Deep mutational scan, measured.
Amino acid sequence: NKFNKEMRNAYWEILLLPNLNEQQKRAFIRSLYDDPSQSANLLAEAKKLNDAQA
Results as ranks from 00 to 15, higher is better:
Asn1Ile: 09
Lys2Phe: 12
Lys2Ser: 14
Phe3Gln: 05
Asn4Glu: 15
Asn4Lys: 03
Lys5Phe: 02
Lys5Ile: 02
Glu6Leu: 04
Met7Ala: 13
Met7Phe: 15
Met7Arg: 01
Met7Glu: 15
Arg8Gly: 04
Asn9Val: 11
Ala10Asp: 02
Ala10Tyr: 02
Ala10Val: 09
Ala10Met: 03
Tyr11Leu: 08
Tyr11Lys: 14
Trp12Ala: 11
Glu13Thr: 09
Glu13Val: 15
Glu13Lys: 15
Glu13Ala: 15
Ile14Glu: 00
Leu15Thr: 15
Leu15Trp: 06
Leu15Asn: 09
Leu16Tyr: 14
Leu17Ala: 05
Pro18Lys: 13
Pro18Val: 05
Asn19Val: 08
Asn19Leu: 10
Asn19Phe: 08
Asn21Ala: 08
Asn21Glu: 14
Asn21Pro: 04
Asn21Asp: 12
Asn21Ile: 15
Glu22Phe: 07
Gln23Lys: 10
Gln23His: 12
Gln24Met: 06
Gln24Trp: 05
Gln24Glu: 09
Lys25Met: 05
Lys25His: 02
Lys25Phe: 03
Arg26Pro: 01
Arg26Leu: 05
Arg26Gly: 05
Arg26Ala: 07
Ala27Arg: 10
Ala27Asp: 15
Ala27His: 15
Phe28Ile: 08
Phe28Asn: 01
Phe28Val: 03
Ile29Asp: 00
Ser31Pro: 04
Ser31Lys: 11
Ser31Gln: 10
Leu32Thr: 01
Leu32Gln: 02
Tyr33Thr: 04
Tyr33Pro: 02
Tyr33Ala: 03
Tyr33Ser: 03
Tyr33Glu: 02
Asp34Trp: 06
Asp34Ser: 14
Asp34Pro: 03
Asp35Met: 10
Asp35Pro: 01
Asp35Phe: 07
Asp35Arg: 08
Pro36Phe: 07
Pro36Asn: 05
Ser39Lys: 10
Ser39Asn: 03
Ala40Val: 13
Ala40Lys: 14
Leu42Met: 11
Leu42Gln: 04
Leu43Phe: 04
Leu43Val: 06
Leu43Pro: 01
Ala44Gln: 08
Ala44Tyr: 10
Glu45Thr: 13
Glu45Lys: 12
Glu45Phe: 07
Glu45Met: 12
Ala46Val: 04
Ala46Glu: 00
Ala46Met: 01
Lys47Thr: 05
Lys47Ile: 05
Lys48His: 13
Lys48Val: 14
Leu49Pro: 00
Leu49Tyr: 11
Leu49Gly: 02
Leu49Thr: 14
Asn50Glu: 04
Asp51Trp: 13
Asp51Thr: 13
Asp51His: 14
Ala52Trp: 13
Ala52Ile: 15
Ala52Asp: 15
Ala52Phe: 14
Gln53Arg: 01
Gln53Phe: 11
Gln53Asp: 13
Ala54Val: 11
Ala54Gln: 12
Ala54Asn: 08
Ala54Ile: 06
